[in-house]
Simulated assay, not measured.
Amino acid sequence: MSSLLKPLDQGKLTLNNRLVMPPMATSKCEVDGKISKDILDYYDEKSRGGYISLIIVEHSFITQKGKASEGQMSIAEDSLVESLKELANIIHKNGSKAVMQINHAGSAASKDVTGFEPVGPSAVANPRKGNVPKELTKEEIKEIIEEFKAAALRVKEAGFDGVEIHSAHGYLLNQFFSPLTNHRTDEYGGDVLGRIRIHLEVIKAVREAVGDDFPVLLRLGAADYMEGGSTIEHSKIAAKEFEKAGVDMLDISGGFCGYIIPGVNGQGYFAPLTEALKEVVSIPVILTGGITEAQAAEKLLSEGKADLIGVGRAIYKDSNWAKNAIESL
Rank of each mutant, 00 (worst) to 15 (best):
S2P: 09
L5I: 12
L5T: 10
Q10S: 13
Q10I: 14
T14I: 12
R18N: 12
V20F: 02
P23V: 01
A25H: 12
E30P: 01
D32S: 09
D38H: 13
I39F: 08
D41W: 03
Y42V: 08
E45K: 12
K46W: 10
S53D: 08
V57H: 01
S60T: 12
T63K: 14
G71L: 02
Q72S: 10
M73V: 14
S74A: 15
A76E: 07
V81D: 09
E82A: 15
E82T: 14
S96K: 04
I102C: 05
H104Q: 02
A105I: 03
G106I: 01
S107G: 11
A109D: 05
A109G: 09
K111F: 03
K111Q: 09
V113N: 08
P118N: 04
G120C: 07
N126T: 08
N131K: 13
V132F: 07
E135V: 02
L136Y: 04
K138D: 14
E139L: 10
I144G: 01
E147K: 15
K149A: 15
K149N: 14
A152I: 09
A152F: 04
G159N: 10
I165M: 03
S167M: 07
Y171C: 06
L173D: 00
L173F: 06
L173Y: 03
Q175H: 05
S178R: 03
D186I: 12
E187M: 11
E187Q: 15
G194E: 06
R195L: 09
R197N: 04
R197P: 01
H199W: 12
R207S: 08
D213T: 12
F214V: 02
T231E: 06
S235T: 08
A238S: 05
A239R: 00
A239M: 03
A245Q: 13
G246V: 02
D251K: 00
S253D: 05
G255C: 07
I261C: 06
N265T: 12
Q267M: 10
A271G: 02
T274V: 02
K278R: 15
V280I: 13
S282F: 00
P284V: 03
I286N: 00
L287I: 06
T288G: 12
T292P: 04
A297C: 01
K299I: 03
L300P: 07
G304N: 09
G310S: 12
K317L: 14
W321R: 01
W321S: 06
K323W: 03
A325I: 00
